[in-house]
Design a protein around this nucleic acid. Structure first.
Lengths: 262, 262
DNA sequence: CGCAGTATTGAAATTTCTCAAGCCGAGTGG
DNA sequence: CCACTCGGCTTGAGAAATTTCAATACTGCG
């Protein structure tokens, strides 16, 4: 039995997921009820542990309840490229519903709690309730938009701007999920891993981070990202959250509010 | 009226699309017929012309009949980052069905012919025929897998390997679509644009390409990619096409065969 | 022929990486 | 309670890669 995962944690994560899925705009109360009725089993992941690995053919999908997960490619040399980070309320491998073989892995960055949902249940749900299907589809499309932004970040931005943009994205998403408290959020990556996400050496990460620190924009220490000047960071990064496709702020916020009051 | 687009061009493109959609494995004859029955209007694009631009809210989706299209981000500085390339049989902006605002643009790289499909027709089709919906969904998931690979390519591979991998992907996809003849395929990018796709300067592209040329692996001249040693190029790139998720080779090949015989 | 866009080259300037060493802080055990 | 250890962070300096700049070829086309 997972230690850190409580029913209320699961419920909070579910609320976050529902809030994102409502972005599609046509979820009925019955749809929501059907999503809540999904029978998942829980699983704890130790830091560094894979939930699914490249090459596997999973028959379940992962739903994050607590902690942070990351997707990554493993290169023939053994090197890693981190592709995306996932927090409470995310479903990091919905794509495995339709793409049978994993072209990347999914691991926990810190101690994490996940729920595991059988593919057949999800497929069945999508068939019975097209609105839910569209909402899941939409989640994967937002994922793709984030991947696109990562291409641009790694390819076209200077080191400082790149790191700043990365911090913006993580902080913004954490804030949306109600996981940011007094200007900081969890980001359990060390400088080497940050380098493997941003295509730079850990030395460069270090020196770049010092610049952000010196300009009093943001800092990352022992797995926690502190944003001291959000407006400034956003400006420095040229961060425009349009690509996260949060069209209906109110819905998310309402839901988040509900979550926070619990 | 488009000059270069003929009914048979459209039919060939449609066959390619159907072949890819059949990868999902559950398309019925009726599903295929319904896709074929979609009422599209045709449009010609001049080289460089946008089909859709960042910030717009399109109500139609694009289907490529001839020529090559590219998705790209426009940065505040005016710089471009190319995100993906699209050929005959591709639908480069299915995501706009569910993500209302374009977070990137779509342009023609050479003279291109496209068909334009109204969103409401497509949505309607997905609702009436869930199998078709899943197949479209799957297309967008393969897109995402290609984006992931681009992140890794730009972030974790040396210049030579990066360019080689890019060439592999383009050539492989062209071959799958029956668009490669005697070891070459169309790739209407100049060295600057290649740099904007791969996150390197046009000078570096030039020098890197000379290495591939010297090793007699591949060459790009006046918009045509010539692969002189496919096995060698693949080896040099560490190219593993798993991420393109072409599970059922036979289906694609059959369809391609049908197309080529026409 | 000459133009425009593209490709190529050389060399300097800059960035980035590698290597190697020292530092710091948390946790451990004497 | 303090020395010790380990992992991660920081620093400096030389090496290597990459970009920038500037000039020169090449190519297809009017």
């Amino acid at each position: 039995m997972p230690r850190k995962s409580s029913p209320s944690q699961y419920r909070e994560a579910l609320d976050l997921l529902l809030a994102k899925m409502e972005q599609h705009g046509t979820l009925t109360a019955a749809d929501e009820a059907a999503i809540c009725a999904l029978r998942a089993y829980k699983r704890s992941l130790a830091p560094g542990e894979d939930a699914v690995s490249q090459g596997e053919r999973p028959d379940v999908a992962v739903f994050v309840i607590a902690g942070m997960l990351a997707r990554y490619h493993t290169l023939p040399s053994g090197d890693r490229q981190y592709l995306s980070l996932h927090i409470k309320g995310d479903m990091p491998d919905v794509q495995s519903l339709l793409l049978t073989i994993m072209d990347h892995s999914l691991c926990a960055l810190d101690q994490a709690e996940i729920a595991v949902l059988p593919h057949n249940q999800l497929i069945d749900l999508c068939l019975r309730r097209p609105g839910v299907g569209f909402a899941f589809w939409r989640l994967t499309l937002v994922d793709a938009a984030i991947f696109r932004q990562a291409i641009t970040n790694n390819g076209a931005r200077s080191h400082v701007v790149r790191l700043a943009h990365f911090f913006c994205e993580q902080y913004f998403r954490a804030k949306e999920a109600g996981l940011a408290t007094d200007g900081s959020c969890s980001l359990p990556l060390n400088q080497s891993e940050l380098g493997q996400a941003l295509g730079m050496s850990h030395i460069s990460v270090n020196r770049t981070m010092q610049k952000l620190r010196k300009e009093r924009l943001a800092d990352l220490r022992s797995g926690r990202l502190a944003v001291s000047n959000w407006a400034g960071l956003q400006r420095a990064a040229g961060f425009d959250p349009t690509y996260l496709h949060i069209d209906k702020i109110s819905a998310v916020s309402q839901k988040r509010f509900r979550t926070e009051r619990r």
